[in-house]
């Protein structure tokens, strides 16, 4: 089934996304044109992001048991309750703060790609390391779902994950999953739809108070960033990195390449202009 561009609900979704029109590649499965919402799949390397992507879209992204398989963005689409979602499978990343070049692709999409929902896929067997990225994502958005994948593997190793308590502590929906066998998929779909449509409201705990002095500098810097990059999402996050002296963000802000990882790097992206589909 195909939909035409423009059937979205307007204020959120593909039309307002900086990627709009830049990667309309025809692929098997549901066309990625005219979606209502955009979902980003984030998570540490090898946590099952592409497995979740394939389960939701029916596509066949490369899956295997070593980290670093997905190196560029891959996109697909699926429907939940008549709403159409574009989903972006990202390379694995341990952090939004320290990046290798494929992590930069993930970081840029999470920060600047304006996803309506960010699904953080975490590995139930190595929660402590995985929650680092989950917390960083929850610092920048309250539209997130935490998918605790590999629950079967955790059980085999005698690890119990209390996803209910975790959901309470994080203030975001937490879905236990074993994506390879489809366990938890209906719950994940419901959580994605709920967060996208606003029927599920995340209650993220506020970030620690940075103090009046830092806040004042941050406000000035955020304004300066926005003056240079009008409409940039997460300008405060960028300003925080500048205050910290994060070398990659400083360099990108200086030479005007902030968020450039958004352009290019799409799997199968054609050299020529998109064909406009339908």
């Amino acid at each position: 089934m195909r939909l035409r561009r423009g059937s979205g609900d307007g204020d959120s979704g593909c039309q307002s996304c900086p990627m709009a029109g830049s990667a309309a590649v025809h692929r098997p499965g549901l066309s990625i044109e005219g979606c209502d919402y955009v979902v980003a799949l984030a998570g540490n390397p090898n946590t099952g992001k592409s497995t979740v992507f394939n389960a939701l879209t029916g596509l066949r992204q490369h899956v295997g048991n070593w980290p670093g398989k997905t190196v560029v963005r891959a996109e697909g689409a699926f429907r939940i309750d008549g709403k159409k979602f574009r989903i972006v499978d990202l390379p694995g990343a341990y952090s939004l703060l320290s990046n290798s070049s494929d992590e930069e692709v993930a970081r840029d999409f999470i920060l600047f790609g304006r996803p309506d929902v960010t699904v953080v896929v975490v590995d139930a067997t190595t929660m402590e390391r995985n929650l680092n990225l989950a917390l960083q994502v929850l610092e920048i958005t309250d539209r997130a779902v935490v998918a605790v994948n590999l629950m079967d593997e955790a059980e085999r190793k005698g690890i119990r994950v209390d996803t209910r308590a975790l959901g309470r502590d994080l203030g975001a929906p937490v879905v236990p999953m074993a994506a390879r066998s489809g366990l938890g998929l209906p719950e994940l779909r419901a959580a994605i739809l709920g967060v996208a449509s606003g029927t599920i409201q995340c209650r993220i705990h506020p970030a620690p108070d940075l103090g009046a002095e830092v806040e004042a500098s941050l406000a000035r810097l955020t304004e300066a960033v926005l003056a240079e990059y009008p409409g940039l999402p997460n300008a405060r996050w960028v300003a925080l990195r500048l205050l910290e002296g994060d070398p990659s963000v400083v360099r990108e802000a200086r030479n005007g390449t902030l968020g450039d990882g958004l352009h290019g790097h799409v799997v199968d992206e054609p050299a020529a202009a998109p064909t406009g589909a339908s």
Binding site: Y94, L97, S98
Partner: peptide, 12 residues
């Protein structure tokens, strides 16, 4: 210090 320190902190 720098990015290498940040990296190790991120890895736990």
């Amino acid at each position: 210090g720098g990015p290498e320190r940040r990296r190790l902190l991120d890895l736990g």
